[in-house]
Amino acid sequence: MGSTTANIPTWLGVAASATLVLIAILISWRERLGLEREVAVAALRALVQLALVGALLLFVFDRGGLPAAFGWLVIMVVIAGFVAGGRARSIPQARSHAWWGIGVAVTMTMGLLLVLGTIDAVPRVVIPVGGMVVSTAMVTAGLGLQRTADVVDDQRARIEARLALGLSPREAFLEPYRTAMRTALVPSVDTTKVVGLISLPGAMTGLILAGVDPWDAIRYQIVVMYMLLGAAFMAAVISARLAQRSLFDDAERLVRTLQ
């Protein structure tokens, strides 16, 4: 990556930027929003969390090597599965479906990028790029499971009408499943459509801040957008397909979901 001549804030600079937190607290106090305490806690949490992550990254980059980087990814996937699965409590084993969906999406996406040599197999690249993939996969797996739970509630009669005609659970669930997947994935497609027009995405912003030529930065960003699109689809579809299996019992009945 390009050499950095950019001016990264010093700790003194960070302290100076805390004035802006003070302004936020002041506004909350003047306007009686009652958020002073929360703002202070949030700012402090951000500082502590990021400092810890920074220290950990430093350690991994210096000594941990690739195994530590992949270990990091695994931990992220585990946490992401918890979060995404929690979005659809009414689906049996939702967490396990989310883990599989996110895990497979991350493995496939990162594997492909590494095997094709698109990104470097070094912790400095694997962790941040993997993090983006995990978080996108988490969001779409969660959305996919949540929408699946919604269509089961809304379309129970339609699903049972198809089962009653002797169709398989997969056939009976096809229409609701497609509805769920479309609503879960449209945001990802839309984000890809408007990238650069409405938002300057994170990876590109970071590279530009770090002094990289914009023309180089966008190449990285294109790769990021493409990989996130792939990961989003894989995560949503795999989680939802697994959810579908757990929604029907041995006698091909739609199970009663817990509301």
Partner: peptide, 19 residues
Amino acid sequence: DVRELRRRVGMVAQHPAML
């Protein structure tokens, strides 16, 4: 076989869903 059973035993609901 449950699918065969359901083809031999048809069902129509009170408010049938139009699919």
